[in-house]
Design a protein around this nucleic acid. Sequence first.
DNA 1: GTTGCGATGGAGAGCGCTCTCCGCAGGTGC
DNA 2: GCACCTGCGGAGAGCGCTCTCCATCGCAAC
Lengths: 362, 362
Amino acid sequence: MTDDLRSAGAPTLEDVARAAGVSRATVSRVINGVRNVDPAIQEVVRQAVSVTGYAPNRAARSLVTRRADAVALVVSGAGVESGPGPEGSGSRAAGDDGSFTAQVFADPFFGRVVTGVVNYLRPRGMHPVLMFAETSRARDEVVAYLRQGSADGALIVSTHAEDPLPGLLAKAGLAAVLYARPARPVPISYVDLAHQDGARLAAEHLLARDCRRIATISGPLDVPAGQARLAGFRDTMARHGHPYTPIAEGQFTQESGEAAMERLLAEHPDLDGVFAANDLMAMGACHVLREHGRRVPEDVAVVGFDDSSAALACRPPLTTVRQPVEEMAAEMTRLLLDRMARPAAPATSVIFEPELVVRGSA
Amino acid sequence: MTDDLRSAGAPTLEDVARAAGVSRATVSRVINGVRNVDPAIQEVVRQAVSVTGYAPNRAARSLVTRRADAVALVVSGAGVESGPGPEGSGSRAAGDDGSFTAQVFADPFFGRVVTGVVNYLRPRGMHPVLMFAETSRARDEVVAYLRQGSADGALIVSTHAEDPLPGLLAKAGLAAVLYARPARPVPISYVDLAHQDGARLAAEHLLARDCRRIATISGPLDVPAGQARLAGFRDTMARHGHPYTPIAEGQFTQESGEAAMERLLAEHPDLDGVFAANDLMAMGACHVLREHGRRVPEDVAVVGFDDSSAALACRPPLTTVRQPVEEMAAEMTRLLLDRMARPAAPATSVIFEPELVVRGSA
DNA sequence: GTTGCGATGGAGAGCGCTCTCCGCAGGTGC
DNA sequence: GCACCTGCGGAGAGCGCTCTCCATCGCAAC
């Protein structure tokens, strides 16, 4: 059995075939489990594989199958090619100082996306390639990466509206799926949350607690999620006889939530309920409220959004609207693999329903 | 110029060569910038590239260059092949429920590692492939992935001591670099922090504030970082005439920090200073202290470790010992690329010095 | 005028794999 | 008993690229 294994480099199919006394094709068939191969020969081949310590060369396989068996997970940032015009071609000069990536990962949201993606991919023997696309050049790199065949498709998580990347991908005919509906319609599948319903749950909960002077800290209003959460909140309030509710715009960061809470408190010192469009801002709001001598939830009830790790880290733990990020990310991945299998299929969308999670803050 | 571009599929070198009226080899030379090619011809080739929209096929290139131009970023988990014996071969049956990945990303630490890695890799046209290795099978997959040539090397971040992955990698002769010194010596380069020095800074700061009854919430004591931070703290306290300091062991999570603080407070209600071995636990400690009517820092001063995002999210913001995770991750990546370039070079280690960051909590 | 040499472009051999053909058995139908 | 299928293994043609040769050319040196 101790045959003449090729001394140099890793063993190839050829080496295994020689060791097993069969042809390359047969070894390949056994490894890929295609067609019927005599069980006895299968066993011999498997022996030879383990004796030689064979590992199939991925590049060679990719070359002929034309699949990389990899997907890109792209965190896509600001698309501010400012100014009007259908297709601003000016490339923003952005520093390579990593401030974008640093900011991005401070948000527990992305960790959850990664978790969902990885959990779906792993059982299928695939792994995500992490990429960032916050500049025009970086976007081109993502497109090039896919066109080179380094990955078979892309999962896009945009941090800003008007992100040009989905459009670029669609135009290039590359497989992609988005997390969250794009600001402008693009023929690409996406998953999203029923943000309005979530905001409704939050508003109804505060009203049910007999809060009467309710304000909201919205997300950035140029982002669909920010808009929808605000709209859902306002509609519900209006439907319950509160046509006017104070609003302070935040940026989905704890800091912006603190600032927004300060503003609200200055103008409406008597408020007794706050809906923050995400947990980070809700946490900031709690801090500010406490600093101003307000007890949460006794004096002011606070509801967040997302049910991120921040909700549990906060004291009191946040009552919040759960966004099932992990499941959504997994579904997004499923949609992508689907599309890779049938490139001609039309784009679809899957909308998830949020749930209210009641904890200490409201 | 509008030549007969191949209709089917992506353009190949051949197509570009035909469009430019030169040979494949020349196009390849222009693209890879090797040897002298007449500037005029270079220009013609470049034109042809952009006309045809050519993107070099990565698999084909990898096949001949024998490089993937990719690295794996592996989050490696528990290696509890329990029981004695030099090489436990029993594979843990672990659920594929994603609880590991979910847990991992709850810690802001990993986001910072990713940031550092990506920032180093990006300017070099590379991207990390995210992998998890918390089970025996998953570890084998990582090894297989590298042996297949899907990635040229691995960056390993272990969450537990006694992680078998570094050993496996070393045995297979694969390029790898670790974040943090392994529990057992392994011939692999790593970056690490001078944990003892960091703990010393924390202790000295508390002592300088005239804290007299100082306790510590340690990290898990089976992890080198947990041990070293505790040792550094104790040594410093002893050197300043405090041979005995109360200790409660935590697990680097906020929850464990809360529990540890409860225990300390029950046994030592009069303590006036706490050193927690990371920020998450320090944050938990702050919560518990406040719930017990202690003001931070007036009644009890709290010092954390890491200077993670939790330090700023906390109220008051945490005085902490800064671990430059992003720089360390970047350095780890640099070491890996180094090693990939010169596989025969001996393993090295780079130790970073921590810094005290004074904020509100102490 | 011949030789030598550096500079430059082309030809062609693979890299390791998959997959379509084909051939050769051995069984089946009439 | 002959044609016919079916099952199974082998041969060999690439996939698209890089890179080592080799051919060619211009020019300086003898």
